[in-house]
Simulated scan of single mutants.
Amino acid sequence: MRAALFVTCVNDALYPRTGIAVVRLLERLGVTVDFPAAQTCCGQPQYNTGYRHEAEPLVRRTAEAFAGHPYVVTPSGSCAAMIREHYPRIGRRAAAEGRGGELAALARELAPRVYELTEFLVDVLGVTDVGAYFPHTVTYHPSCHGLRGLGLGDRPRRLLTAVRGLELVELPGAEECCGFGGTFAVKNPDVSAAMGTDKTAAAAATGARVLCGADNSCLAHLDGLLRRARSPLRTLHLAEILAATEEEPLS
Rank of each mutant, 00 (worst) to 15 (best):
N48A: 14
G126C: 03
A38N: 07
L242H: 03
L226K: 00
H141K: 02
V191D: 03
R230W: 04
P189S: 04
R228A: 15
E167Y: 01
I241G: 06
L171I: 01
R157A: 15
N188S: 12
A239F: 06
R28K: 07
G98S: 06
V7T: 13
V72I: 13
L117N: 02
K187I: 08
T74N: 08
E175K: 09
L25S: 02
T32A: 14
V59F: 11
T235F: 05
N216M: 15
S192D: 07
D12Q: 12
G179Y: 09
G207A: 07
L58S: 07
V124W: 03
A185I: 11
H237G: 08
E240Y: 00
P70L: 08
P112K: 01
A21T: 01
V73T: 04
T8A: 11
L211W: 03
L26N: 08
Y51D: 15
T8W: 04
P232I: 14
H86D: 15
H221D: 10
E247G: 05
A96G: 14
T32Q: 14
E64C: 04
K199S: 11
T118S: 09
R2Y: 14
Y140S: 11
C42W: 00
P142D: 13
R60N: 07
R24V: 01
G173T: 10
F6S: 11
L26Y: 10
L222N: 03
L226W: 06
L150I: 09
E175F: 14
Y140G: 05
L233F: 05
G91N: 03
